[in-house]
Structures are given as C-alpha cells and as structure tokens.
Design a protein around this nucleic acid. Sequence first.
RNA 1: GGAGUCGUGGUGUAGUGGUUAACAUGCUACCCUGUCAAGGUAGAGAUCGCGGGUUCGAUCCCCGUCGGCUCCGCCA
Length: 598
Amino acid sequence: MLKTHACGELRAEHATQEVVLAGWVHRRRDQGGLIFIDLRDRMGITQLVINEETHPEIHAAAKDIRNEWVIQVKGRVRLRPEGMINPNLPTGDVEVEVLGLSILNRAKTPPFYINKEESLDESLRLRYRYLDLRRERMQRNIILRHEIVRHIRNYLSERRFIEIETPILFKTTPEGARDYLVPSRVHPGKFYALPQSPQQLKQLLMVAGFERYFQIARCFRDEDQRGDRQPEFTQLDMEMSFVEREDILDLVEGMFTSIVDELTDLELVTRPFKRLSYQEAMELYGSDKPDLRYDLHAVDVSDIAGRSGFSIFTANVEAGKPVKAMRVPNLGAESSSQLKKIHQELEGLAKSTGAKGLAYMAIPTEEGGEVRGPIGKFFSPELQVELFERLNVQPSDLLLFVSDERQITYEVIDTLRRHLATKLNLYDDKTVAFVWIIDFPLFEWNADENRWDPSHHLFTSPYPEDIPLLDTDPAAARGLQYDLACNGFEVAGGSIRIHQREVQEKIFELIGLDVEDARQKFGHMLEAFEYGTPPHGGIAAGIDRLVMLLAGEPNIREVIAFPKSQQAADLMAGAPSEVFPEQLRELHINIVPVEDKN
RNA sequence: GGAGUCGUGGUGUAGUGGUUAACAUGCUACCCUGUCAAGGUAGAGAUCGCGGGUUCGAUCCCCGUCGGCUCCGCCA
C-alpha cells in the first residue's frame, strides 16, 4: 500500500507516530514560509504542514502543488499548537509534519469545485461525473447506498435467503412498460429483451424449490424519465415459498426498520409501519402512496354538504359525486386579503388538476367569531355544527372543499396535500414515514379495450374469499397485493401469487386472454406451474428510491454513480451512439431514417 | 408525443434594444511562519448555447434548433 493510514482516521492518540498518507489535494493555504495542505481521501481530510525552515526542498516542491493533485507524504503526526485546533474537522486535533513528499500525479484545474458545495449545471455534472462523484455529498450517498445493500444482503442471508442471478438477456413481454430490445446475431430478425424485473424468473425459482430467493437486480424500462425514474434501476427482488402476506410484510418491515435505525440518523414516525387499505388511502389522502410525515387528510362530508344550500354541492351529491373537506390548521387566521390570495393560489392548483373550483371556510380564531368565506352562508348553524364535529374543527382552521368526479377529487386532495406540506413546512426532513397499502382491487376496468386489466400483474392471487367474485363482480375482488410507500414515494410492491391453475385460467379469461394467447405468451410459466408449484409470494423494492429518501436527496440521480439524463443519454460516454455499418449488418438491421417533420 | 423553464469569463450569478458586458469565486504571478472558505497586490480570462429573422443597431424582441431540468402522457 502507498499509505499506512487513511486521511480522516488520525487522532490525538496517533501523535508522534510516523505515517504515510496519500490522496488528493483538497485545498492549499500558502503562507509563504509555511504551507498548509488539506489532504483528502475517501475517509476524510488531514492537514499537512510544510515548513520552509526545516525542509526547504519539500517546501519548494510544495509551492507548485495545486488542487486535486495526487500526492503521497511521509510525515509525523503531532498535536496542533495551543489555539490552532479545528473543531470542524474530525482530525482537527492533529496535523502531519511533512518529512517526505512525492507527487503521484498532477491534475488539470477541474471544471467545477470539488471542495465546495454549489449548485451546478446538471449537464456539467453528468459530463464530468467522475469529478462530481469526488464531491463529499456524492461520496456520502454512494457509500450509504453500499451500506444499505450490504445490510440487505446480510439480513436476508441470515434468514436463509439465497442470492441468485437471473438473465439480463431475456424475452419481451407484451404487458407493462416498453422493453429495451437487443438484436440477435444468431437469429436474424429476433430480439432479446432486457428484464423490466425478474418477475417470472423468481417465480420459476420457487417452482425450482429454492424457497427463499433474493437478488439486487438491475431492471430496464424504456419509458420517459422522472426525478424518481431512470431507464435502468435497481430492485431488491425477493420471493418466498410457503408464505402468507403477513410473513412478507413482517420481513420487509424488519429489514427497513433496521436499515433506518442502524444506517441513518432519521426518525421513523410510523413504528410499526402504518397500514391502510387502498380504499382508505384514496379516501383520506387521494393517493396510494401518501406522505404520512404530516397529518393533512380529507374527510367525506357528502351527506352534510348535500343538505346545504350550496347548489354545486347538492347537485354533485345528487349525481353521486363526493364532497371532500380538508382541515388546514392556522391558515384560517389570515387576514381577509391574505386569505383571498391563498385561496386563489390553491384554487389555481386545484383547477390545473382538473377541478372546477375550490370552496373554503375560515374558522374564527375566537369562540363565537364569524365564519369567513363565500360558502359559509349556505350552511345553517345546525349544519355547521355537524360539519365542524365531523371534521374535528379547531379555531383558526381553514377548511377546503373539493367536489368533483371521484378520481379528480382524489387527485386534487393529493396535489393540495403535497403543496401545503411544503408551503407550510408541515414535516421534519429528519423523519421517514413508511405505510403499507394493502387490499388493492385485483382489476382496473380498461374502457379503451373493453376488458379488465390486472392492477398489479396477472399472477397476483385474489383474496381466497373473493374468488367467487371473479364470476359475479370482478371490480370488487381484492388482490393479495401490497405496496410500501415512504414519504410519498412507492418504494416496494409485491403480491402473493396464484398457484392454482383454475384461478389462473379465470384471470386470463377476465383480462381477455384466450388459452392460445396465454400459451403463446406465458407457456413456459403455465407449463412450469403444472409440476408442483408451492404457494409463494414476493416483493420488489426500489433500491435507488429508498437510498434517495434515506440520503435526503430530491432526485434518484444523486444516488446512482452514473445516471442518465432526462433524455436517457449518458453525457459522459456519449451513449447511445451510432455504430459501424458492419455491426448492423451482422445483426441484420437496417436503419430507417427519421421522417422529416415538414 | 406535449407543456413549462434555464443556457452570459473555468464555476456560480447580475444585467441591458446602443454599456469598456458587472459581481463573487476559481485561475496565473508576486508578498506573507499558524492557516483551515486564509489574507494582500497585480493580471489574464466572454464569438452572452447554435442558426435564422425583426431593427440603423440584438446578449436582450421573434422563430427554429441543440442541451439540462421539472411536469403531463407513459411507467402491468
């Protein structure tokens, strides 16, 4: 090794020891006869001191050193003089008196600061990702990611899980996201597909008798980017045999709880994790991945509003549309002009989400005060009492009312919650809130295709007691499906799978797959299931999203070493790129020019 | 596929239909023996993303284009 110690591990107890350090020059402070260098490696920073009087040759060489040069020093650790201790540095009690210096490599001046946190143009960061990754924030994130993954591997290995790799070159599936395709040289005109997830393979591993499988699996989806979506991402993929839903929820809950407790300084606000049915989540929060770090929620007041004199509400209730109210603490105390502005802002938001309007009432600060807002007068005193009791109204509350098609109502509630939480600073950044969403409907009606679509995937088992509903009322059938949401993001999802052939065939029928189609697309699965399939179920968790949330980052790119830009490009390497005609010929591919827009 | 937004010395920002294009930092040189976001002095560094248009004149206004980002669609 070119060093005996890491920068960052030296402490007072190392004083008088002779050490060899190597790393990057983080910063240089030239005082003339005395040069200080902050030497950085992955573990931290140590101050080097070079004295012209005692070591003139070293001092002369150090004059030329610049930021980000790679150097190695031999030196003696010593306590800093009285009053020179730097309390901001873990190594601040000591410094290294340099007795020998060797320049391992020079460096060009970097295109941006390594030693300073500053907002940066994203394309610059991506272009010079290897430099971006040198920055402390990125090092911290990538190391945290490693620790989380290692923790997961240990946790599951201790519980008799086996890590098994599955192919990256696999078969296209018509369902789900767009596939990334890989042309076959050996089979002209045929393509592999990169897996969107190892879903089928992990179920086959259960058929194979491994009973407990996991994988840190790379997955690929050729869809457009978002802040929490990359074209390739990593899932913790798991599957277990002879389990029930509870077993999987318990396992994952234990794992994630220990990750938060042992690897972060964050506080879990839902311990144990909260559980909501899909229905409850939608009614309360308008979302199947609600952020429960804060308590804002909607209450159905359709019955009360339907008896008011406000014609929009009464007409909507008549038409079967809900009226939902949300109680926002303190905003009701604002001045009338301020209130008007707030309402305008929130109504604008509601309208952009598809609502026609947003009604409000401001609850007085004092007992016996006047309720403000244009719709108050449509509620009789008795009706107001009933309404306020339902909402558990407190002085100075602002009540917001949404009424529209059910789906729009949900979306507006979700939008308002997210907006108000940020605006009013309703949550603590140092907290995480996990919530299980369970009891999803097994199907969603696809009006375009006039058939049922599986809301999770087509191997999801119905509730055993809901199986009869498949014949009578498919919409009411609940799936043994579960999602895990964290701080408003979906971080995991899975289900207990169907292991009975009759049930599987029933599902195929409902989603409009005849036996022939099913054979064509899933023949290998169906065939496998005929050879003794254990009851099984599993879950897949988004590692990138989880790390993003635990690192307190706003974007998934911050926890991926080499992410792609919004247009799915690697700005550093320049991928995707053109290829040589010879390569295309081998793959039996012709490029069709993009049609001119004009 | 669509909407929005950003693009000005290396970096981060300011700015205006006519300017010597400003500030901070970085960079270069020199001074400096207790600094730690060191300090001081001097200096270099910008076809204002690219193309076209309007105009006597465009970094600024308009159109297009490229790139980044955010969002909608999409993401079983």
